[in-house]
Nucleic acid binder design. Structure first.
Length: 499
RNA sequence: GGCCCCAUCGUCUAGUGGUUAAGACACCAGGUUUUCAUCCUGGCAACAGGAGUUCGAUUCUCCUUGGGGUCACCA
């Protein structure tokens, strides 16, 4: 049994895409499950488009997801000498040949074949040039690329996901293995590198499926053992088109910025297109490593459902300790205090905000974004609907004032005493509890919904509660309407430092 | 268009030659005289179509349809 060695081989021509991540995850899982190695190979043979910044982005994204690799990442460009050697070898033993046909001409030949409805792949007119003539033209300085001389036998390989895949030889072009500028192409480089890196299993996207027969041909010509192949189905957008930048946040780093937890993304992507056959929705990293198997990979492509990812993020959030959520939020909170968005000295409110809001939040940042009232007096009521519905009774200002007065008189301000005070008052008024509870919630938080009222009041403290209630009462009396934002599109409450 | 691949609720998936075809997300309705963005309960909702094999097909075979991939001197 050969040791398991797999590789993730991104090309640094763009940011790491959420679809690419799944391939990386499958490779990682397969390696860990089998006590094998995961290697990274940067496929940068396209000098024009490869950028070092993308390379860094990709590596950062992998680290963020906890996809630790073994051995140093390798750059394919560092191996061109070796690639050339083997190209040369293929030319010498007649398995590849110099092709002097210009790119334009080759293109025209292919187009002509297609136009007449032909089914034959490109066969270079130069494939049967004698060695001597070929050499002579090269010596004369005529530009050439090197093409592989595709044999006439059909090619097949065994795919661990789809089973046997067979391709008729006449559908495979005499493909280029070295360009006219003397640089080896991807097709040549992958085969040589996978072989020399001793890759046991090539796990990659299904978009590579049609490349595989060509690579198999190369393995045979080079007399190298083939790895196992597993082509995982592509991920689709909601429109059933292959997932791409057009579908919104596609770069992994964007998910990180949006507040997705690495474990949630990891778990979600793992179970997209793979399943164990049991009714379980959420797996931990350990469980995934424990049970991952190529057999569980589906044949059909899957649509990426961001709503479900969001939900899962919420699930993972609730497994996090208050402390680690605070940890995540602390830098941003510090920034907001620095910017003056929140007053100094409000840092300690973070613990309370996290405690009360974490089960309701799907992203850590929700706690800050929707819980600004833990740090600041609300000056407007963002939830217009709630404001209109809950504050229309003209008796509300007086009631808020009266309740505030009663709260203020409490020697101990606890959930029990606060609730008792409110209950007594509603009984006196002979109204529903909601008639007082909702206006109070809006007064202290500016929101129509949130944590249970009494725990919220206690978390904010008596002083703050009373102040905010009186402030809303005053506004209502003075203006006759709730302080709703002028701009109906306005989403964030206007913030003013606490006086 | 050629070639390759795929096909169970809107989405992700489970499943079997005979099942009330299961779960999750989403959605809807309740659980509230304390909201919802948490939690609980319930509901809606699928075997693409047509032949064939079979006592019996969602399951096996073929065709059709639909979807995807790929057809670079990119990777």
């Amino acid at each position: 049994m050969v040791p398991v060695r797999v590789r993730f081989a991104p090309s640094p021509t763009g940011f790491l895409h959420i679809g690419g991540v799944r391939t990386a995850i499958f490779n990682y899982l397969f390696a860990r499950h089998n006590d094998g190695k995961l290697l990274i190979r940067i496929e940068d043979t396209d000098k024009e488009r490869s950028k070092r910044e993308y390379e860094n982005d990709i590596l950062d994204a992998l680290k963020w997801l906890g996809l630790e690799w073994d051995e140093e990442p390798m750059r394919q460009s560092s191996r061109v000498t070796r690639h050339r050697e083997l190209v040369e070898e293929l030319v010498e033993n007649g398995k590849a040949f110099r092709c002097f046909v210009s790119p334009e001409k080759a293109q025209a030949i292919k187009k002509a074949e297609m136009d007449r409805g032909g089914i034959n792949a490109f066969r270079s007119p130069d494939r049967e040039l004698t060695a001597r003539e070929s050499q002579a033209r090269a010596d004369a300085g005529e530009p050439f690329a090197i093409r592989f001389k595709v044999p006439s036998l059909d090619v097949s390989f065994n795919d661990r996901v789809r089973g046997k895949v067979t391709t008729p030889a006449h559908t495979i072009d005499d493909f280029i293995i070295m360009r006219r500028d003397n640089t080896p192409t991807y097709m040549m480089a992958v085969v040589v590198d996978d072989s020399e890196m001793e890759i046991s299993h090539v796990i990659r996207g299904a978009d590579h499926i049609t490349n595989t027969p060509k690579q198999v041909l190369l393995y045979e010509a080079l007399n190298l053992p083939e790895p196992e192949f597993a082509h995982v189905p592509l991920i689709l957008g909601p429109d059933k088109k292959r997932l791409s930048k057009r579908h919104g946040a596609a770069a992994v780093t964007e998910y990180r910025e949006q507040g997705y937890l690495p474990d949630a993304v990891f778990s979600f992507m793992s179970t997209l297109g793979w399943s164990l056959g049991e009714e379980k929705d959420i797996y931990t990293r350990e469980e995934l490593i424990e049970s991952f198997d190529l057999k569980g990979i589906n044949k059909s492509s899957a649509v990426f459902d961001e709503k479900k990812l969001e939900w899962m993020n919420g699930q993972f959030m609730s497994t996090l300790s208050d402390n680690s959520i605070q940890q995540i939020l602390r830098p941003e909170l510090a920034r907001r205090i620095e910017d003056g968005a929140y007053p100094h000295g409000t840092g300690p409110m973070l613990a309370k905000a996290v405690q009360l809001l974490k089960t309701r939040a799907r992203f850590p940042m929700d706690i800050l974004d929707k819980g600004g009232y833990f740090f600041n007096d609300p000056t407007t009521i963002v939830d217009r609907k709630a404001a209109k519905k809950r504050l229309k009774d003209p008796a509300i200002p007086d009631r808020l004032d009266e309740l505030a007065k009663r709260f203020s008189a409490l020697s101990e301000f606890t959930e029990e005493t606060a609730e008792e005070a409110l209950r007594i008052y509603i009984e006196e008024l002979d109204v529903n509890a909601g008639a007082l509870i909702h206006p109070t919630r809006i007064a202290v938080s500016g929101m129509g919904s949130g944590p249970g009222l009494f725990e919220l009041l206690v978390a904010l403290g008596k002083e703050t509660t009373v102040r905010r209630m009186r402030s809303l009462a005053e506004h209502l009396r003075k203006h006759g309407t709730p302080p709703i934002p002028d701009d109906p599109e306005l989403e964030l409450p206007m913030i003013e430092p606490v006086g």
